[in-house]
Amino acid sequence: MEYLALIRTFNSLPLVEEVIGCLRMQTCPPTAIMAVDSGSDPGQAEALRALVDVWLDVSGQAFNYSRSINLGVQAATLENVLIISSHVMLREQDVMERFFAELASKGDRVGSVISNKSQAWLVRQVNNASFTGVNGLTNSCSFAPTALLRELPFREEVFASEDQEWTKRFLAIKAGSLTVVETGQIDYLNKHFSYKKKYNEEMALASFVDTRRKGLPAILTWLLKSIWSICFRGDKAKAGHRFRVAMGLCKARFKKPDINSKYY
Rank of each mutant, 00 (worst) to 15 (best):
W121A: 14
V113G: 02
K191H: 11
D41V: 15
R150Y: 04
I227F: 07
V88H: 00
I173E: 11
E182L: 09
P257G: 05
L51P: 08
F193E: 04
M89L: 14
G176R: 09
R91Q: 14
G136Q: 03
A101L: 13
F159Y: 01
A160T: 00
V52M: 01
V209H: 03
I219K: 04
L223V: 08
V54R: 08
R169V: 13
S130E: 01
L224K: 14
C22Q: 02
W228K: 06
N128E: 14
A252L: 08
W121I: 08
S66D: 02
H192T: 13
E201Q: 03
L122W: 06
C28M: 12
N116L: 05
R109V: 14
R212P: 09
F63G: 08
A35Y: 04
G111Y: 12
R67S: 04
G43C: 15
S59V: 15
V54A: 07
I20T: 05
D37K: 05
S68M: 10
R8D: 02
A218L: 07
R8N: 03
V180S: 14
S86T: 14
A218S: 11
Q26P: 07
V158R: 00
K262G: 08
E79G: 11
T9S: 08
V36S: 01
E151V: 01
L48R: 00
S59T: 13
S115T: 12
V180P: 06
E201F: 06
A204V: 06
V81D: 07
V58T: 11
Y3G: 13
V209K: 01
G176P: 04
W55E: 11
Y65A: 03
Y263W: 10
G72D: 03
G136P: 07
E165P: 04
Q44P: 03
V126G: 07
D235Y: 08
S86C: 15
S142Q: 02
A172R: 10
M89G: 02
L23E: 07
K168P: 15
V110Y: 13
D37W: 06
L148D: 06
E18I: 02
L56Y: 12
N200P: 04
Q74R: 09
Y195W: 14
S161T: 02
A76K: 03
G133V: 15
A120T: 01
I83H: 09
A172D: 12
L78C: 09
A120Q: 12
N116H: 14
V245W: 02
Q93V: 13
I20N: 10
K197G: 03
R91M: 10
Q119N: 08
E157A: 13
S12G: 12
E102G: 06
R67T: 10
G240Y: 03
E182T: 11
M89I: 11
V134C: 05
L223T: 06
M203A: 05
V16D: 03
T77K: 14
L82S: 06
N128S: 15
P42K: 00
L220M: 12
C22V: 00
